[in-house]
């Protein structure tokens, strides 16, 4: 059946699982993209997709239709991924470093992995540096940046998703950009 998102959400709220299936099939790709960018890992992203739809299903009564269903869903996905990143981060912080390398500042480590200037001629090489650099951002910075840069969310939306004040959300985006620009310093010469 050719439901709009809003009609399908209404139907699903009334217990129609086929309506929810329509929403799952329609939004899975986009939710996966966001989850992958947030977690940087395919397996985690798959887990986040499952968790997002499961939470959405359980919280359907709370979806009031003021925002688009997709926006609501992406907010859930961002929150699930944030929970995951924070729990991983707190586990890392709770455990002693495994090697001497762990005590080296992340910027130094990214810089130490830098390829030679000759190799840094394609944007794919920037992507190679981007992944580890993103993983070194705090969970909030990473989420704020992904939502702003790739999902096109405005500051208010990001603040609502992260549960922080607008100024804090704005500053998180800035800190993320600042750290990324520095971490990718070796690559910038190549894109001129």
């Amino acid at each position: 059946m050719d439901w709009t998102d809003s009609a399908a959400a209404d139907e699903a709220r009334r217990g129609n699982q086929q309506a929810f299936r329509v929403l799952v099939e329609r939004h899975s790709h986009a939710v996966f993209r966001l989850a992958f960018r947030m977690t940087g890992n395919e397996q985690d992203a798959e887990d986040m997709v499952q968790e997002t739809f499961l939470r959405a299903y359980k919280q359907l009564q709370r979806f009031d239709g003021r925002a688009a269903f997709g926006t609501w869903l992406y907010r859930i996905c961002a929150n699930c991924s944030l929970d995951l990143l924070r729990s991983r981060q707190s586990r890392r912080e709770a455990q002693p470093p495994e090697t001497g390398n762990e005590s080296v500042h992340w910027l130094d480590r990214v810089a130490a992995r830098e390829p030679s200037p000759e190799r840094l001629t394609q944007s794919s090489q920037i992507a190679d540096l981007l992944q580890p650099a993103l993983k070194r951002l705090s969970a909030t910075e990473r989420a704020a940046f992904i939502l702003r840069h790739y999902e096109g969310c405005d500051i208010e939306e990001i603040a609502r998703t992260l549960g922080v004040q607008a100024n804090a959300a704005k500053h998180s985006v800035f800190r993320a950009v600042q750290k990324l620009r520095r971490a990718l310093e070796p690559a910038w010469g190549a894109i001129r």
Partner: peptide, 27 residues
């Protein structure tokens, strides 16, 4: 220039049947 360069964040492709696969796992 820097931020534009970060736009291409490669994401693994998912096939056209991906939504159906998610549904099967979710159901």
């Amino acid at each position: 220039e820097h931020l534009d360069a970060l736009r291409d964040y490669p994401v693994p492709e998912r096939g056209p049947g991906y939504g159906g696969e998610v549904w099967k796992r979710l159901l």
